[in-house]
Design a binder for these strands. Structure first.
Length: 460
RNA sequence: CGCGGGUUAGAGAAAUGGUGUCUCGUCAGGCUCAUAACCUGAAGAAGGUGGUUCGAUUCCACCACCCGCAACCA
């Protein structure tokens, strides 16, 4: 579900930019390297490549499932182009003197047959094998001189007031960087973890997964082959990254340091979402049985309904709960009783009394709406739409065109036309939020036809 | 005193230094164009203690509770 949230929010912003005429390059991708993938594939008895090839289908499915823009670019970190980009990037960073080889001491739990990080240990022991002493194993890894980037990063943060959205995440990040940075291991011995991108000039090592994965942001816009596209969208554009709050450091600190190390311009903005939780703010987890599958929601209610919930009911940046109960409630209120019913009552009148759809003005979306979206206040933008929906319902009640039209046809037609036009504006504003509904509603209005079946059927 | 976030009606959210807004739910009334929908009205709320202020839900301090993070899983 968290994945769906990021996908849909990024898509809404991309659609907003497209709507105001910006040239949008919208990208998403999958990390396909790393030990998790490798182990899982081994478990299934297939090659890692076969495994990720299978997984990628889910990803393409979700484009439809979540109503994501069809011209989205999609990068896989196992793409040859990405592999080349990652190696090229590595060389750049290495040539600039920010990569070195160092002995790396790992703690290995013989009980789990796994390396353990300090944060995983409890009182110096593996929590699952508290009696078993940890073995220390040594290996040579490549390290990235992250520590040298404290100052440059802080300078970057100072020079870009809105570099990380929202502000409180930015503060959090700044504190982290101010607290001092340590160099990171960025490679693994191939003999231990063969599924990764080979380190240039060293066949015995592969890149550590996040190092290669982060490069996808520039690989997708052409780096290093198509520098024209790269220049257009990365150097001269406003490359904006979306991530969950758990990913802030990787995107807003490490990746930025890596870009500096390679002598490339930084990202423009990092937008950080909160997490979706289950009932009561607890984590969604299979063991607790509180997982809600976005695909099931989209199947039953449609992608627009899912999007509407994720964009309108989920907080912009804080954690928010997603439960089936809340979803249904919101669906019935916002879509069935609200938007759907409103469209139905207006279009029934217009089909009956108007000869054709009244002339539609070229532009009618208020600039305040775009202002909200430019600040990533998607929730606020939705509030604005639903405020208009409510106001229109109210106006119909008060002006009673259904009554007036029987006494004074011309006056009644005038009232109905006004309502149709307002409905059209609402439909337009739905473009970034609910792209299908935006289309369907505009078509109905132009054809002066009431919906044959309810736009959003009430569910009990 | 490791860092950060949160605490607003029964539930979920928003805004705000001066009548506290929205959605769901509850109660009463209205309308009939509409998807048993829609409109109006009512009841119902700021964790605690101090401080700044003419005035604090909003700013500050402290306390309580909840939640993230604390770096090689991304």
């Amino acid at each position: 579900m968290g994945h769906a949230l990021e996908f849909v929010r990024a898509d809404a912003i991309a659609r907003y930019h497209a709507l105001v005429g910006d040239d949008v390059f919208f990208n998403s991708g999958t990390d396909e390297h790393g030990s998790k993938i490798y182990n899982k594939a081994k478990e299934l008895g297939i090659s890692p490549q076969e495994f990720v090839d299978q997984n990628v289908k889910d990803f393409y499915d979700s484009v439809k499932m979540f109503g994501v823009m069809e011209d989205i670019h999609f990068i896989r970190t196992s793409d040859p182009h990405h592999v080349k980009a990652a190696q090229e990037f590595w060389k750049k960073v290495s040539d600039n003197g920010y990569i070195y080889k160092k002995n790396y001491e790992a703690k290995y739990c013989t009980g789990c047959e796994q390396e353990k990080t300090d944060s995983e240990l409890v009182d110096g022991f593996c929590p699952e094998h508290p009696g078993v002493a940890l073995e220390k194993i040594n290996e040579e890894n490549y390290f990235f001189k992250f520590s040298e980037f404290q100052k440059p990063l802080l300078e970057l943060y100072d020079s870009r007031k809105d570099f990380v959205i929202p502000e409180f995440r930015f503060n959090e990040l700044r504190r982290f960087v101010e607290g001092g940075l340590q160099d990171f291991s960025i490679s693994r011995l191939k003999t231990k973890m063969p599924w990764g991108i080979e380190v240039p000039g060293d066949e015995s090592q592969v890149m550590y997964v996040w190092f290669d994965a982060l490069v996808n942001y520039i690989a997708t816009v052409g780096y290093p082959d198509d520098m024209e596209t790269f220049e257009k969208y990365w150097i001269n554009g406003t490359p904006t990254q979306y991530c969950g709050k758990d990913n802030t450091r990787f995107q807003a600190a490490m990746w930025q340091a890596m870009l500096l190390a390679a002598g490339l311009p930084n990202s423009y903005q990092i937008v950080v979402n909160g997490h979706i939780t289950a009932e009561g703010g607890v984590k969604m987890s299979k063991s607790l049985g509180n997982v809600v599958d976005p695909k099931e929601i989209a199947d039953e209610y449609g992608s627009d309904a899912l999007r509407c919930f994720l964009l309108k009911e989920i907080s912009n940046f804080e954690d928010s709960p997603f439960t089936l109960e809340r979803f249904k409630e919101a669906y019935n209120a916002n879509l069935a009783n609200g938007l759907g019913n409103l469209a139905s009552r207006i279009l029934t009148l217009s089909e009956k009394y108007l000869d054709a759809c009244p002339p539609i003005p070229e532009k009618s979306i208020p600039t305040e709406f775009f202002d909200l979206l430019s600040k990533y206040d998607i929730h606020g933008a939705c509030e604005m739409i639903w405020h208009r929906i409510n106001a229109l319902d109210k106006r119909i009640q008060e002006t009673a065109p259904f009554k007036v039209v029987k006494e004074d046809l011309e006056k009644g037609k005038e009232l109905i036309s006004e309502n149709v036009l307002e409905l059209y504006t609402i439909a337009r504003m739905l473009n970034p939020i609910m792209p299908n509904t935006n289309k369907v509603l505009k078509e109905l209005i132009k054809a002066n036809k009431k919906p044959e079946t309810p736009l959003f059927l009430r569910k009990d």
